[in-house]
C-alpha cells in the first residue's frame, strides 16, 4: 500500500541548496524526519514513509482539491478486502476493543495485539463517561443507521480505512495498517450496530 518517497531527490536538493530560505521544502522535511528518528521495538522506519494519502494531505495542509481527494478515496475504498457474509461480530468483544487504546507503540509487545482506542476520540456507549471529542459522537449509532447489510458494510470499511470516505480524516486506517484484525473490526461493527449492544439501548 505504501508508496515510497523519492528520498534521493530530497537529499540532492539539500546538498545543492543548503540553508537558502528559512522554509524547508517538503522533500527536505521528509529527509530530516528519516534522519532524526530511529526504529524502536515494533515501530520500524517504514512507518515514516509517506504513502499517497499522507503525502497529499501534508502538502495540502489537509485541504486537497476535491477531485484529487475523490480519486484517491475511490482507490482506498477499492483496496479494502470486504469479507463476504455478515459483518456483525460479537458486540461484547467489540466493547473491549473500542475501549482499549493499547497497541502498535514502540514500548508495547506486538504479540499482545491492539485495541481501536475508539473512546480516545468518540463518545459511544452512554455508560462510558470518559471519551474524547476529536471525532463525532457515535452514541446510539445503530438506532439511527439500522443494522442492515449496507450499514454493516459502511462501518466495516470506515474502520478499515477512514480515508476511503474522507481523505484527510484524523482517523487512523485500522485495517490497512494491520492494527485491527478482520474479526476485531467485525466486533466493532456489532458494538456500534447490534440492537443488543449497550450502545443502542
Amino acid at each position: 500500500m505504501k508508496t515510497k518517497l523519492m528520498l534521493a531527490a530530497g537529499l540532492a536538493a539539500l546538498v545543492l541548496a543548503p540553508m537558502v530560505g528559512a522554509e524547508p521544502s517538503y522533500e527536505e522535511v521528509q529527509m530530516i524526519i528519516h534522519r532524526d528518528f530511529k526504529a524502536k521495538g515494533q515501530a520500524k522506519m517504514d512507518r515514516l514513509d509517506q504513502d499517497v494519502v499522507q503525502q497529499v494531505c501534508t502538502r495540502a495542509h489537509d485541504k486537497p482539491p476535491a477531485d484529487v481527494a475523490k480519486a484517491i478515496e475511490a482507490d482506498q475504498l477499492a483496496a479494502i478486502p470486504v469479507p463476504s457474509g455478515s459483518l456483525m461480530g460479537d458486540w461484547k468483544k467489540g466493547a473491549k476493543t473500542a475501549w482499549s487504546g493499547k497497541g502498535m507503540q514502540w514500548n508495547e509487545d506486538p504479540k499482545k495485539g491492539a485495541g481501536g482506542g475508539c473512546y480516545n476520540c468518540h463518545e459511544i456507549s452512554a455508560q462510558r463517561t470518559s471519551f474524547g471529542t476529536i471525532g463525532p459522537s457515535l452514541k446510539a449509532f445503530g438506532k439511527k443507521r439500522g443494522h442492515g447489510a449496507d450499514a454493516q458494510r459502511y462501518v466495516y470499511t470506515k474502520i478499515y480505512n477512514a480515508k476511503a470516505y474522507n481523505l484527510c480524516s484524523n482517523m487512523p486506517r485500522f485495517g490497512t495498517t494491520g492494527t485491527l484484525t478482520e474479526q476485531q473490526i467485525k466486533d466493532l461493527v456489532a458494538y456500534l450496530l447490534d440492537p443488543n449492544s449497550p450502545n443502542n439501548k
Binding site: E23, Q50, V53, Q54, T58, R173, T177
Partner: peptide, 14 residues
C-alpha cells in the same frame, strides 16, 4: 511548523 502539520507514522497523525 512543517513538522507540526506533517502527517506521519502508522496512524497518519500530524
Amino acid at each position: 511548523k512543517a513538522l507540526f502539520f506533517a502527517r506521519t507514522g502508522l496512524y497518519d497523525f500530524s
